[in-house]
Design a protein around this nucleic acid. Sequence first.
DNA 1: GTGTTTATCGTCAGGCAGACGACTATGATC
DNA 2: GATCATAGTCGTCTGCCTGACGATAAACAC
Lengths: 252, 252
Amino acid sequence: MPYDPSAFPPFAVTVDLVVLTVRRHALCALAVRRGEPPFQGRWALPGGFVRADEDLAQAAARELAEETGLRTHNPAVPAQDNGAHLEQLATYGDPKRDPRMRVVSVAHLALAPDLPAPRAGGDASNARWAAVEELLQQGGYGRDGEPVAPLAFDHAQILSDGVERARSKIEYSSLATAFCPTEFTVGELRRVYEAVWGVALDPRNFHRKVTGTPGFLVPTGGTTTRQGGRPAQLFRAGGATLLNPPMLRPEV
Amino acid sequence: MPYDPSAFPPFAVTVDLVVLTVRRHALCALAVRRGEPPFQGRWALPGGFVRADEDLAQAAARELAEETGLRTHNPAVPAQDNGAHLEQLATYGDPKRDPRMRVVSVAHLALAPDLPAPRAGGDASNARWAAVEELLQQGGYGRDGEPVAPLAFDHAQILSDGVERARSKIEYSSLATAFCPTEFTVGELRRVYEAVWGVALDPRNFHRKVTGTPGFLVPTGGTTTRQGGRPAQLFRAGGATLLNPPMLRPEV
DNA sequence: GTGTTTATCGTCAGGCAGACGACTATGATC
DNA sequence: GATCATAGTCGTCTGCCTGACGATAAACAC
Protein backbone atom coordinates (compact mmCIF):
# COMPACT_ATOMS: atom_id res chain seq x y z
CA MET A 1 0.00 0.00 0.00
CA PRO A 2 2.06 2.95 -1.20
CA TYR A 3 1.58 6.37 0.26
CA ASP A 4 -0.35 9.05 -1.48
CA PRO A 5 2.61 10.93 -3.01
CA SER A 6 0.87 14.23 -2.40
CA ALA A 7 0.93 13.59 1.35
CA PHE A 8 4.59 14.52 1.71
CA PRO A 9 7.14 16.56 -0.21
CA PRO A 10 9.62 14.60 -2.35
CA PHE A 11 13.32 14.94 -1.62
CA ALA A 12 16.46 14.07 -3.46
CA VAL A 13 18.90 12.22 -1.19
CA THR A 14 22.64 12.29 -1.81
CA VAL A 15 25.74 11.12 -0.02
CA ASP A 16 28.70 13.47 0.26
CA LEU A 17 32.11 12.26 1.32
CA VAL A 18 34.73 13.77 3.56
CA VAL A 19 37.73 11.65 2.61
CA LEU A 20 40.70 12.44 4.81
CA THR A 21 44.30 11.35 4.56
CA VAL A 22 47.65 12.52 5.86
CA ARG A 23 50.19 13.63 3.28
CA ARG A 24 53.44 15.40 3.93
CA HIS A 25 52.57 16.04 7.58
CA ALA A 26 49.29 17.72 6.65
CA LEU A 27 45.71 16.62 6.98
CA CYS A 28 44.26 16.54 3.46
CA ALA A 29 40.81 16.03 2.04
CA LEU A 30 39.68 14.84 -1.36
CA ALA A 31 38.14 17.60 -3.47
CA VAL A 32 36.60 17.39 -6.92
CA ARG A 33 36.07 20.24 -9.36
CA ARG A 34 32.49 20.80 -10.37
CA GLY A 35 31.93 20.52 -14.11
CA GLU A 36 28.47 22.01 -14.22
CA PRO A 37 26.35 24.65 -12.53
CA PRO A 38 25.70 25.53 -9.86
CA PHE A 39 29.15 26.39 -8.53
CA GLN A 40 30.70 25.35 -11.85
CA GLY A 41 34.49 25.26 -11.63
CA ARG A 42 34.48 25.40 -7.86
CA TRP A 43 35.85 22.65 -5.63
CA ALA A 44 33.41 20.44 -3.81
CA LEU A 45 33.29 17.23 -1.84
CA PRO A 46 32.76 14.06 -3.87
CA GLY A 47 29.27 12.63 -3.72
CA GLY A 48 26.20 11.65 -5.63
CA PHE A 49 22.63 10.48 -5.55
CA VAL A 50 21.54 7.52 -3.51
CA ARG A 51 20.03 4.91 -5.80
CA ALA A 52 16.57 3.52 -5.35
CA ASP A 53 17.62 0.13 -4.01
CA GLU A 54 20.68 1.21 -2.09
CA ASP A 55 21.38 1.62 1.61
CA LEU A 56 23.08 4.85 2.67
CA ALA A 57 26.28 3.07 3.66
CA GLN A 58 26.29 1.21 0.35
CA ALA A 59 25.90 4.44 -1.55
CA ALA A 60 28.78 6.01 0.35
CA ALA A 61 31.00 2.98 -0.24
CA ARG A 62 30.14 3.02 -3.93
CA GLU A 63 30.95 6.70 -4.28
CA LEU A 64 34.20 6.21 -2.39
CA ALA A 65 35.21 3.38 -4.69
CA GLU A 66 34.32 5.40 -7.76
CA GLU A 67 36.37 8.37 -6.67
CA THR A 68 39.39 6.69 -5.14
CA GLY A 69 39.28 3.00 -5.90
CA LEU A 70 39.35 2.37 -2.16
CA ARG A 71 37.58 -0.61 -0.71
CA THR A 72 35.80 -0.20 2.56
CA HIS A 73 36.47 -2.63 5.32
CA ASN A 74 33.80 -3.81 7.64
CA PRO A 75 34.20 -2.23 11.08
CA ALA A 76 33.40 -5.62 12.60
CA VAL A 77 36.50 -7.08 11.00
CA PRO A 78 39.91 -5.92 12.22
CA ALA A 79 41.72 -3.75 9.73
CA GLN A 80 43.81 -6.29 7.91
CA ASP A 81 43.44 -4.98 4.42
CA ASN A 82 44.21 -1.58 3.06
CA GLY A 83 40.57 -0.58 3.02
CA ALA A 84 39.42 2.78 4.24
CA HIS A 85 37.39 3.42 7.34
CA LEU A 86 33.92 4.71 6.50
CA GLU A 87 31.25 6.00 8.86
CA GLN A 88 28.23 8.20 8.70
CA LEU A 89 28.94 11.77 9.71
CA ALA A 90 25.77 13.87 9.72
CA THR A 91 22.90 14.88 7.50
CA TYR A 92 22.45 18.32 5.98
CA GLY A 93 19.04 19.40 4.84
CA ASP A 94 18.71 23.15 4.77
CA PRO A 95 15.94 23.92 2.25
CA LYS A 96 18.23 26.33 0.39
CA ARG A 97 21.45 24.34 0.46
CA ASP A 98 21.03 23.43 -3.20
CA PRO A 99 19.55 26.22 -5.33
CA ARG A 100 17.96 23.78 -7.76
CA MET A 101 15.75 21.73 -5.51
CA ARG A 102 15.32 20.16 -2.14
CA VAL A 103 18.33 17.95 -1.50
CA VAL A 104 19.15 16.18 1.73
CA SER A 105 22.75 15.07 1.92
CA VAL A 106 23.90 12.29 4.22
CA ALA A 107 27.57 13.09 4.72
CA HIS A 108 30.03 10.29 5.42
CA LEU A 109 33.54 10.40 6.78
CA ALA A 110 36.26 8.23 5.26
CA LEU A 111 39.80 7.87 6.55
CA ALA A 112 42.41 6.48 4.21
CA PRO A 113 46.17 5.89 4.16
CA ASP A 114 48.27 8.08 1.90
CA LEU A 115 48.72 5.55 -0.92
CA PRO A 116 46.03 6.29 -3.46
CA ALA A 117 46.20 8.92 -6.15
CA PRO A 118 42.91 10.61 -6.91
CA ARG A 119 40.99 9.55 -9.96
CA ALA A 120 37.65 11.24 -10.35
CA GLY A 121 36.06 8.86 -12.76
CA GLY A 122 39.35 8.59 -14.65
CA ASP A 123 39.86 12.34 -14.88
CA ALA A 124 42.63 13.13 -12.43
CA SER A 125 42.74 16.85 -13.20
CA ASN A 126 39.32 17.24 -11.64
CA ALA A 127 40.19 15.64 -8.33
CA ARG A 128 42.96 16.42 -5.89
CA TRP A 129 44.12 16.07 -2.32
CA ALA A 130 44.11 19.50 -0.74
CA ALA A 131 45.22 20.51 2.71
CA VAL A 132 42.16 20.88 4.89
CA GLU A 133 43.47 24.16 6.17
CA GLU A 134 43.60 25.45 2.61
CA LEU A 135 40.11 24.25 1.71
CA LEU A 136 38.58 25.83 4.78
CA GLN A 137 40.17 29.25 4.63
CA GLN A 138 37.71 31.73 3.20
CA GLY A 139 38.84 33.92 0.35
CA GLY A 140 42.56 33.71 0.89
CA TYR A 141 45.43 32.53 -1.26
CA GLY A 142 46.58 28.95 -1.45
CA ARG A 143 50.11 27.63 -1.18
CA ASP A 144 50.64 28.20 -4.92
CA GLY A 145 49.52 31.81 -4.75
CA GLU A 146 46.27 31.18 -6.56
CA PRO A 147 43.17 32.70 -5.01
CA VAL A 148 41.10 30.21 -3.10
CA ALA A 149 37.36 30.02 -3.68
CA PRO A 150 35.23 28.59 -0.89
CA LEU A 151 33.88 25.09 -1.37
CA ALA A 152 30.56 24.69 -3.18
CA PHE A 153 27.22 24.37 -1.38
CA ASP A 154 27.59 23.92 2.37
CA HIS A 155 30.59 21.70 1.86
CA ALA A 156 32.86 23.87 3.98
CA GLN A 157 30.59 23.18 6.93
CA ILE A 158 30.50 19.47 6.15
CA LEU A 159 34.27 19.29 5.82
CA SER A 160 34.70 21.21 9.04
CA ASP A 161 32.37 18.84 10.87
CA GLY A 162 34.19 15.84 9.43
CA VAL A 163 37.57 17.13 10.50
CA GLU A 164 36.28 17.82 13.99
CA ARG A 165 34.85 14.30 14.14
CA ALA A 166 38.21 12.83 13.11
CA ARG A 167 40.09 15.00 15.58
CA SER A 168 37.99 13.91 18.50
CA LYS A 169 37.58 10.31 17.46
CA ILE A 170 41.28 9.50 17.34
CA GLU A 171 41.39 10.49 21.00
CA TYR A 172 39.36 7.60 22.25
CA SER A 173 39.52 5.07 19.43
CA SER A 174 42.19 3.36 17.40
CA LEU A 175 40.99 5.12 14.29
CA ALA A 176 44.29 6.88 13.68
CA THR A 177 45.61 3.57 12.36
CA ALA A 178 43.20 3.97 9.44
CA PHE A 179 45.52 6.71 8.18
CA CYS A 180 48.49 4.34 8.23
CA PRO A 181 49.49 1.53 5.88
CA THR A 182 49.00 -2.02 7.09
CA GLU A 183 52.35 -2.01 8.82
CA PHE A 184 53.60 1.15 10.41
CA THR A 185 55.92 2.45 13.08
CA VAL A 186 55.13 4.28 16.27
CA GLY A 187 56.70 7.40 14.75
CA GLU A 188 54.45 7.22 11.72
CA LEU A 189 51.43 6.89 13.95
CA ARG A 190 52.64 9.84 15.98
CA ARG A 191 52.95 11.96 12.85
CA VAL A 192 49.33 11.12 12.06
CA TYR A 193 48.22 12.45 15.42
CA GLU A 194 50.39 15.50 14.97
CA ALA A 195 48.97 16.24 11.53
CA VAL A 196 45.35 15.71 12.50
CA TRP A 197 45.59 17.67 15.72
CA GLY A 198 48.08 20.20 14.43
CA VAL A 199 50.29 19.90 17.48
CA ALA A 200 53.70 18.49 18.35
CA LEU A 201 53.79 15.46 20.63
CA ASP A 202 56.64 14.21 22.76
CA PRO A 203 57.97 11.10 21.00
CA ARG A 204 58.95 9.41 24.26
CA ASN A 205 55.65 9.86 26.05
CA PHE A 206 53.76 8.95 22.90
CA HIS A 207 55.74 5.77 22.51
CA ARG A 208 55.10 4.81 26.12
CA LYS A 209 51.42 5.54 25.76
CA VAL A 210 50.60 3.66 22.57
CA THR A 211 52.75 0.64 23.33
CA GLY A 212 51.28 0.49 26.81
CA THR A 213 47.64 0.57 25.73
CA PRO A 214 46.49 -3.03 25.49
CA GLY A 215 45.14 -4.09 22.10
CA PHE A 216 46.13 -0.91 20.28
CA LEU A 217 49.29 -2.11 18.53
CA VAL A 218 50.54 -5.57 17.66
CA PRO A 219 54.24 -5.92 16.81
CA THR A 220 54.86 -7.74 13.55
CA GLY A 221 58.49 -8.53 14.38
CA GLY A 222 59.84 -6.58 11.43
CA THR A 223 61.68 -3.29 11.46
CA THR A 224 62.12 -0.50 8.98
CA THR A 225 64.35 2.49 8.43
CA ARG A 226 62.14 4.18 5.86
CA GLN A 227 61.92 7.24 8.09
CA GLY A 228 65.69 7.43 8.54
CA GLY A 229 67.47 7.10 11.82
CA ARG A 230 67.50 4.05 14.02
CA PRO A 231 65.39 1.16 12.73
CA ALA A 232 61.89 1.19 14.17
CA GLN A 233 59.66 -1.70 15.08
CA LEU A 234 56.74 -2.34 12.78
CA PHE A 235 53.23 -2.75 14.14
CA ARG A 236 49.79 -3.64 12.91
CA ALA A 237 46.56 -2.30 14.35
CA GLY A 238 45.37 -4.46 17.23
CA GLY A 239 41.85 -5.62 17.81
CA ALA A 240 40.95 -2.83 20.23
CA THR A 241 38.73 -0.16 18.76
CA LEU A 242 38.14 1.85 21.92
CA LEU A 243 41.18 3.13 23.75
CA ASN A 244 41.06 3.09 27.50
CA PRO A 245 42.53 5.31 28.75
CA PRO A 246 42.20 7.62 25.75
CA MET A 247 44.95 9.58 24.03
CA LEU A 248 45.03 13.08 25.41
CA ARG A 249 44.94 15.99 23.01
CA PRO A 250 47.17 18.73 24.44
CA GLU A 251 45.48 21.95 25.46
CA VAL A 252 45.67 24.75 22.94
CA MET B 1 16.76 25.40 -13.21
CA PRO B 2 15.16 22.38 -11.53
CA TYR B 3 16.50 18.92 -12.04
CA ASP B 4 14.93 16.46 -14.34
CA PRO B 5 12.88 14.53 -11.77
CA SER B 6 13.56 11.30 -13.59
CA ALA B 7 17.28 11.71 -12.95
CA PHE B 8 17.07 10.58 -9.34
CA PRO B 9 14.72 8.52 -7.19
CA PRO B 10 12.34 10.46 -4.95
CA PHE B 11 12.53 9.91 -1.19
CA ALA B 12 10.30 10.71 1.72
CA VAL B 13 12.28 12.30 4.54
CA THR B 14 11.14 12.06 8.14
CA VAL B 15 12.53 12.96 11.54
CA ASP B 16 12.26 10.47 14.37
CA LEU B 17 12.88 11.45 17.95
CA VAL B 18 14.62 9.67 20.77
CA VAL B 19 13.37 11.69 23.73
CA LEU B 20 15.07 10.63 26.94
CA THR B 21 14.36 11.57 30.52
CA VAL B 22 15.09 10.15 33.96
CA ARG B 23 12.10 9.10 36.03
CA ARG B 24 12.18 7.15 39.27
CA HIS B 25 15.87 6.33 38.87
CA ALA B 26 15.35 4.85 35.41
CA LEU B 27 16.26 6.09 31.97
CA CYS B 28 13.00 6.46 30.04
CA ALA B 29 12.12 7.22 26.45
CA LEU B 30 9.01 8.66 24.92
CA ALA B 31 7.00 6.11 22.93
CA VAL B 32 3.81 6.59 20.93
CA ARG B 33 1.34 3.95 19.88
CA ARG B 34 0.84 3.62 16.15
CA GLY B 35 -2.75 4.15 15.08
CA GLU B 36 -2.44 2.83 11.56
CA PRO B 37 -0.60 0.22 9.55
CA PRO B 38 2.08 -0.80 9.24
CA PHE B 39 2.84 -1.89 12.81
CA GLN B 40 -0.61 -0.75 13.93
CA GLY B 41 -0.97 -0.83 17.70
CA ARG B 42 2.78 -1.21 18.23
CA TRP B 43 4.91 1.31 20.06
CA ALA B 44 7.19 3.53 18.05
CA LEU B 45 9.33 6.61 18.40
CA PRO B 46 7.57 9.90 17.76
CA GLY B 47 8.31 11.50 14.41
CA GLY B 48 6.89 12.76 11.16
CA PHE B 49 7.55 14.09 7.71
CA VAL B 50 9.86 16.99 7.10
CA ARG B 51 7.95 19.79 5.44
CA ALA B 52 8.95 21.33 2.16
CA ASP B 53 10.32 24.57 3.57
CA GLU B 54 11.73 23.24 6.81
CA ASP B 55 15.25 22.58 7.99
CA LEU B 56 15.88 19.20 9.63
CA ALA B 57 16.48 20.75 13.05
CA GLN B 58 13.32 22.81 12.71
CA ALA B 59 11.32 19.72 11.86
CA ALA B 60 12.72 17.90 14.87
CA ALA B 61 11.97 20.83 17.17
CA ARG B 62 8.44 21.06 15.80
CA GLU B 63 7.79 17.37 16.34
CA LEU B 64 9.21 17.58 19.85
CA ALA B 65 6.94 20.49 20.69
CA GLU B 66 3.93 18.70 19.23
CA GLU B 67 4.57 15.56 21.26
CA THR B 68 5.72 17.02 24.56
CA GLY B 69 5.18 20.76 24.56
CA LEU B 70 8.91 21.16 25.17
CA ARG B 71 10.73 24.12 23.80
CA THR B 72 14.21 23.63 22.47
CA HIS B 73 16.96 25.83 23.67
CA ASN B 74 19.71 27.02 21.42
CA PRO B 75 22.97 25.20 22.21
CA ALA B 76 24.78 28.51 21.85
CA VAL B 77 22.82 29.91 24.79
CA PRO B 78 23.48 28.52 28.25
CA ALA B 79 20.64 26.39 29.56
CA GLN B 80 18.69 28.92 31.54
CA ASP B 81 15.21 27.88 30.58
CA ASN B 82 13.58 24.52 30.96
CA GLY B 83 14.00 23.72 27.29
CA ALA B 84 15.19 20.36 26.13
CA HIS B 85 18.52 19.63 24.52
CA LEU B 86 18.13 18.57 20.91
CA GLU B 87 20.78 17.28 18.54
CA GLN B 88 20.94 15.24 15.40
CA LEU B 89 21.65 11.58 16.04
CA ALA B 90 22.01 9.66 12.79
CA THR B 91 20.19 8.92 9.56
CA TYR B 92 18.58 5.60 8.71
CA GLY B 93 17.88 4.77 5.10
CA ASP B 94 17.66 1.06 4.54
CA PRO B 95 15.53 0.58 1.41
CA LYS B 96 13.26 -1.83 3.26
CA ARG B 97 12.95 -0.02 6.59
CA ASP B 98 9.43 1.12 5.71
CA PRO B 99 7.40 -1.44 3.76
CA ARG B 100 5.34 1.21 2.00
CA MET B 101 7.99 3.25 0.25
CA ARG B 102 11.48 4.62 0.41
CA VAL B 103 11.77 6.65 3.60
CA VAL B 104 14.95 8.16 4.96
CA SER B 105 14.68 9.08 8.62
CA VAL B 106 16.92 11.64 10.25
CA ALA B 107 16.85 10.64 13.90
CA HIS B 108 17.34 13.25 16.58
CA LEU B 109 18.16 12.90 20.25
CA ALA B 110 16.38 15.02 22.85
CA LEU B 111 17.15 15.13 26.55
CA ALA B 112 14.54 16.54 28.89
CA PRO B 113 13.96 16.94 32.61
CA ASP B 114 11.31 14.82 34.24
CA LEU B 115 8.59 17.47 34.42
CA PRO B 116 6.46 17.07 31.33
CA ALA B 117 3.64 14.58 30.99
CA PRO B 118 3.29 13.07 27.54
CA ARG B 119 0.59 14.35 25.24
CA ALA B 120 0.63 12.85 21.80
CA GLY B 121 -1.33 15.45 19.94
CA GLY B 122 -3.67 15.70 22.92
CA ASP B 123 -4.20 11.97 23.22
CA ALA B 124 -2.30 10.90 26.30
CA SER B 125 -3.27 7.24 26.12
CA ASN B 126 -1.25 6.91 22.94
CA ALA B 127 1.98 8.25 24.38
CA ARG B 128 3.96 7.22 27.41
CA TRP B 129 7.31 7.27 29.08
CA ALA B 130 8.71 3.76 29.10
CA ALA B 131 11.91 2.49 30.64
CA VAL B 132 14.49 2.14 27.92
CA GLU B 133 15.40 -1.28 29.20
CA GLU B 134 11.80 -2.36 28.75
CA LEU B 135 11.48 -0.93 25.25
CA LEU B 136 14.64 -2.63 24.09
CA GLN B 137 14.08 -6.11 25.42
CA GLN B 138 12.92 -8.37 22.65
CA GLY B 139 9.80 -10.42 23.23
CA GLY B 140 9.78 -10.46 27.00
CA TYR B 141 7.28 -9.29 29.57
CA GLY B 142 7.13 -5.75 30.89
CA ARG B 143 6.94 -4.62 34.50
CA ASP B 144 3.16 -4.97 34.40
CA GLY B 145 3.29 -8.54 33.15
CA GLU B 146 2.01 -7.63 29.71
CA PRO B 147 3.90 -9.11 26.80
CA VAL B 148 6.27 -6.64 25.16
CA ALA B 149 6.25 -6.23 21.41
CA PRO B 150 9.39 -4.86 19.80
CA LEU B 151 9.30 -1.29 18.59
CA ALA B 152 8.01 -0.62 15.08
CA PHE B 153 10.28 -0.24 12.04
CA ASP B 154 13.97 -0.01 12.96
CA HIS B 155 13.15 2.09 16.00
CA ALA B 156 14.80 -0.33 18.42
CA GLN B 157 18.07 0.29 16.62
CA ILE B 158 17.51 4.04 16.64
CA LEU B 159 16.64 4.06 20.33
CA SER B 160 19.66 1.93 21.11
CA ASP B 161 21.92 4.30 19.19
CA GLY B 162 20.39 7.28 20.97
CA VAL B 163 20.89 5.76 24.39
CA GLU B 164 24.47 4.93 23.57
CA ARG B 165 25.03 8.50 22.38
CA ALA B 166 23.61 9.87 25.63
CA ARG B 167 25.65 7.46 27.72
CA SER B 168 28.90 8.45 26.12
CA LYS B 169 28.13 12.14 25.77
CA ILE B 170 27.52 12.78 29.45
CA GLU B 171 31.05 11.55 30.03
CA TYR B 172 32.74 14.47 28.38
CA SER B 173 30.06 17.15 28.28
CA SER B 174 27.76 18.86 30.71
CA LEU B 175 24.75 17.33 28.98
CA ALA B 176 23.59 15.46 32.06
CA THR B 177 22.29 18.78 33.36
CA ALA B 178 19.72 18.68 30.54
CA PHE B 179 18.00 15.91 32.51
CA CYS B 180 17.75 18.15 35.57
CA PRO B 181 15.44 21.04 36.37
CA THR B 182 16.89 24.53 36.24
CA GLU B 183 18.12 24.27 39.82
CA PHE B 184 19.33 20.95 41.12
CA THR B 185 21.57 19.39 43.73
CA VAL B 186 24.73 17.38 43.31
CA GLY B 187 22.84 14.32 44.46
CA GLU B 188 20.17 14.77 41.83
CA LEU B 189 22.83 15.10 39.17
CA ARG B 190 24.50 12.00 40.49
CA ARG B 191 21.25 10.05 40.25
CA VAL B 192 21.03 11.12 36.60
CA TYR B 193 24.44 9.62 35.91
CA GLU B 194 23.53 6.50 37.81
CA ALA B 195 20.29 6.06 35.88
CA VAL B 196 21.81 6.70 32.47
CA TRP B 197 24.85 4.53 33.04
CA GLY B 198 23.07 1.97 35.18
CA VAL B 199 25.78 1.98 37.83
CA ALA B 200 26.22 3.19 41.39
CA LEU B 201 28.62 6.05 41.96
CA ASP B 202 30.39 7.02 45.13
CA PRO B 203 28.61 10.17 46.41
CA ARG B 204 31.78 11.63 47.93
CA ASN B 205 34.00 11.21 44.90
CA PHE B 206 31.21 12.38 42.61
CA HIS B 207 30.71 15.50 44.69
CA ARG B 208 34.40 16.27 44.63
CA LYS B 209 34.56 15.72 40.91
CA VAL B 210 31.64 17.84 39.74
CA THR B 211 32.23 20.71 42.13
CA GLY B 212 35.89 20.72 41.17
CA THR B 213 35.35 20.85 37.42
CA PRO B 214 35.47 24.51 36.43
CA GLY B 215 32.38 25.85 34.68
CA PHE B 216 30.26 22.75 35.23
CA LEU B 217 28.14 23.91 38.18
CA VAL B 218 27.29 27.35 39.48
CA PRO B 219 25.94 27.59 43.04
CA THR B 220 22.74 29.56 43.27
CA GLY B 221 23.07 30.15 47.01
CA GLY B 222 19.88 28.32 47.83
CA THR B 223 19.47 24.96 49.47
CA THR B 224 16.80 22.30 49.43
CA THR B 225 15.79 19.25 51.40
CA ARG B 226 13.47 17.82 48.75
CA GLN B 227 15.56 14.66 48.68
CA GLY B 228 15.42 14.30 52.47
CA GLY B 229 18.41 14.35 54.75
CA ARG B 230 20.75 17.23 55.21
CA PRO B 231 19.96 20.30 53.10
CA ALA B 232 21.87 20.29 49.84
CA GLN B 233 23.23 23.23 47.91
CA LEU B 234 21.40 24.14 44.73
CA PHE B 235 23.28 24.65 41.48
CA ARG B 236 22.60 25.75 37.96
CA ALA B 237 24.41 24.48 34.88
CA GLY B 238 27.55 26.50 34.24
CA GLY B 239 28.69 27.79 30.90
CA ALA B 240 31.06 24.92 30.22
CA THR B 241 29.78 22.45 27.66
CA LEU B 242 32.89 20.28 27.42
CA LEU B 243 34.21 18.75 30.63
CA ASN B 244 37.92 18.58 31.06
CA PRO B 245 38.80 16.23 32.59
CA PRO B 246 35.77 14.10 31.68
CA MET B 247 33.59 12.14 34.04
CA LEU B 248 34.75 8.55 34.12
CA ARG B 249 32.24 5.81 33.55
CA PRO B 250 33.17 2.87 35.79
CA GLU B 251 34.27 -0.31 34.10
CA VAL B 252 31.61 -2.94 33.74
C1' DG C 1 16.78 11.77 72.04
C1' DT C 2 17.64 8.13 68.74
C1' DG C 3 17.86 6.45 64.35
C1' DT C 4 17.82 7.25 59.37
C1' DT C 5 18.92 9.70 55.42
C1' DT C 6 21.56 12.62 52.60
C1' DA C 7 25.29 15.95 52.05
C1' DT C 8 29.97 17.30 52.55
C1' DC C 9 34.89 17.30 53.96
C1' DG C 10 39.31 14.72 54.54
C1' DT C 11 42.84 11.24 54.01
C1' DC C 12 45.59 8.00 51.72
C1' DA C 13 47.63 5.03 48.22
C1' DG C 14 48.08 3.86 43.32
C1' DG C 15 48.33 5.18 38.59
C1' DC C 16 48.96 8.03 34.76
C1' DA C 17 50.79 12.14 32.24
C1' DG C 18 54.05 15.77 31.22
C1' DA C 19 58.89 17.15 31.30
C1' DC C 20 63.10 15.64 30.13
C1' DG C 21 67.78 12.94 30.46
C1' DA C 22 70.22 9.14 28.41
C1' DC C 23 71.35 5.71 25.22
C1' DT C 24 70.97 3.15 20.61
C1' DA C 25 71.19 2.25 15.77
C1' DT C 26 70.92 3.67 11.30
C1' DG C 27 72.28 6.83 6.96
C1' DA C 28 74.78 11.00 5.28
C1' DT C 29 78.95 13.68 4.91
C1' DC C 30 83.57 14.63 4.89
C1' DG D 1 86.18 5.25 8.70
C1' DA D 2 85.13 9.17 12.02
C1' DT D 3 81.69 12.36 12.77
C1' DC D 4 77.17 14.20 12.55
C1' DA D 5 72.28 14.23 12.06
C1' DT D 6 68.16 11.69 12.61
C1' DA D 7 64.89 8.85 14.72
C1' DG D 8 63.68 5.31 18.12
C1' DT D 9 63.50 3.44 22.79
C1' DC D 10 64.09 3.14 27.82
C1' DG D 11 64.02 5.50 32.45
C1' DT D 12 63.21 8.83 36.09
C1' DC D 13 60.78 12.17 38.62
C1' DT D 14 56.99 15.01 40.07
C1' DG D 15 52.37 16.47 40.28
C1' DC D 16 47.58 15.51 39.66
C1' DC D 17 43.62 12.70 39.54
C1' DT D 18 41.01 8.73 41.00
C1' DG D 19 39.03 5.16 43.78
C1' DA D 20 38.29 3.51 48.42
C1' DC D 21 36.61 4.82 52.52
C1' DG D 22 36.44 7.23 57.39
C1' DA D 23 34.25 11.07 59.66
C1' DT D 24 31.19 14.86 60.42
C1' DA D 25 26.94 17.75 59.55
C1' DA D 26 22.13 18.82 59.18
C1' DA D 27 17.74 17.75 58.28
C1' DC D 28 13.29 14.49 59.30
C1' DA D 29 10.54 10.55 61.63
C1' DC D 30 9.42 8.39 65.62
